[in-house]
Simulated assay, not measured.
Amino acid sequence: MLLIPAIDLKNGHCVRLRQGRMDDVTIFSEDPVSVAQRWADEGAERIHIVDLDGAVKGQPVNLKVVEAIAAAVDVPVQIGGGIRDEETIQRYLNAGAAYVIIGTKAINTPHFLRDVCLEYPRHIIVSLDAKDGRLALNGWAKVTHFDAIEAAQHCERDGVEAIVYTDISRDGMMAGFNVESTRALAQSVKTPVFASGGVSTLDDIRKLREIEGDGVVGAVIGRALYEGGFSLADAVKIAKS
């Protein structure tokens, strides 16, 4: 099981949001590169980055920071937030990212996802952010009528490398991740699924281990690591046991 520390970028800083609200921000560091190095030193095998400004604007805002992080660590980096054209995908791959994460564009323009999966095989991950089983788009600003499981199945047919599934009602709330919805989504596809949103204790890591056989291959972890809920080293021990 792969545990992936998250670095959310806003105005060049490392921050966390509560329930995806851009007006409820906690700044954890003004030096995201050092944060990435810390997670790599503590055993992270991949770093998850979200350009929150980019998610709102629909284009990269913190590209230079992403490039600096990718250059500073020896583990793969995955980046999402505002990736809505092939030029942006290429720019991030050129900047050193191993994977790019498509969100809103994958749902609003399905042929785009299919095309980029063909153009950049094994580099495309889709982020499905949901509340009560319905997808949220545009930086979580809009909850739609689209069903998350049906969307996951469409993404699988298009050839995505993995799916990051976030329950935004749990994200940043330290309330535990949604085991039931995450398991249900993972069982509906063969594509690897990463849980995201709400992982807050070592017991949550143990719960993840219990549904690993259902296709949940890991988790993106944010606030719990920054607020000292547990150490990454301890979580990795459980994940690898």
Rank of each mutant, 00 (worst) to 15 (best):
Q187P: 11
G197N: 08
T166G: 00
G176L: 10
A186G: 10
A152F: 06
A151T: 10
E156K: 03
R183H: 13
G198M: 06
D158T: 04
R170K: 14
H154Q: 14
H145C: 09
F194K: 01
D167G: 02
M174C: 05
Q153H: 03
A148E: 08
T144E: 10
S188P: 11
Y165E: 04
D167T: 03
V179M: 13
A152H: 03
G159R: 00
V143A: 09
C155M: 06
A148V: 13
D147A: 05
W140E: 00
E180Q: 14
A186S: 12
D167N: 11
D158L: 01
D171G: 02
C155K: 04
H154Y: 15
V189M: 12
T191E: 01
S196Y: 15
F177C: 03
I168P: 03
G176T: 06
A151P: 03
A141E: 14
R157M: 06
A184P: 07
F146I: 10
G159Q: 01
A184Q: 15
V143M: 08
G198A: 10
K142S: 10
F177I: 04
S196Q: 09
R183V: 11
V143P: 05
M173E: 09
T182W: 06
M173T: 14
V160K: 01
M173A: 03
T191R: 00
G159W: 00
A175P: 02
M173D: 07
L185H: 11
G172W: 14
T182S: 04
L185S: 07
S169I: 06
E161N: 00
M173W: 11
R170W: 06
L185F: 12
A152N: 01
H145V: 11
F194T: 01
G176Q: 06
L185V: 07
V164A: 00
D158E: 14
S169V: 05
E150T: 11
S196C: 13
R157V: 04
D171Y: 12
K142A: 12
G172M: 08
V179F: 15
K190I: 14
D167I: 04
A162P: 02
T182K: 04
A148L: 08
G159M: 00
N178M: 05
T144K: 07
K190S: 15
H145I: 10
T166H: 05
V193Q: 05
S200L: 07
V143Y: 11
T166E: 05
A152V: 03
C155P: 00
K190V: 14
S169C: 05
D147F: 07
S196H: 12
A148K: 06
S196L: 11
V143C: 07
S200F: 08
D167S: 02
V143E: 14
